[in-house]
Amino acid sequence: MIDGVIALYIFMLAAFTGYEVISRVPVILHTPLMSGSNFIHGIVLVGAMVALATADSTLVRVIGVIGVFLAAGNAVGGYVATERMLQMFVAAGKKKGKT
């Protein structure tokens, strides 16, 4: 479906995008940001789902279940961790507004 050269274009543009988006981030957000990007590669979940869906042997099925389990942990854990951290910045910002 995705032609080889087209895939390379996607790679290239996505790489520039990632580099540019991050380069403007202040240091205080580096840890939440690492956590946020950690969440985003949780999209591996959809790949793991597709891989498990096509399973037709026990071995592949077991690996697929492990994959989906791990990917779901990546996505959900990454989201919870990032949101909790960022929520604190909101709280600190509001206190600042009051004083």
Binding site: I2, A7, I10, F11, A14, A15, F16, T17, G18, Y19, V21, I22, S23, H30, L33, M34, S37, N38, I40, H41, I43, V44, V46, G47
Partner: peptide, 17 residues
């Protein structure tokens, strides 16, 4: 495509970080 884009964006951003 979603995995290619998200993965590569994180790969590039993570390398810079």
């Amino acid at each position: 495509a979603a995995m290619i884009i998200a993965g590569t964006v994180v790969g590039a951003a993570g390398t810079l970080l």
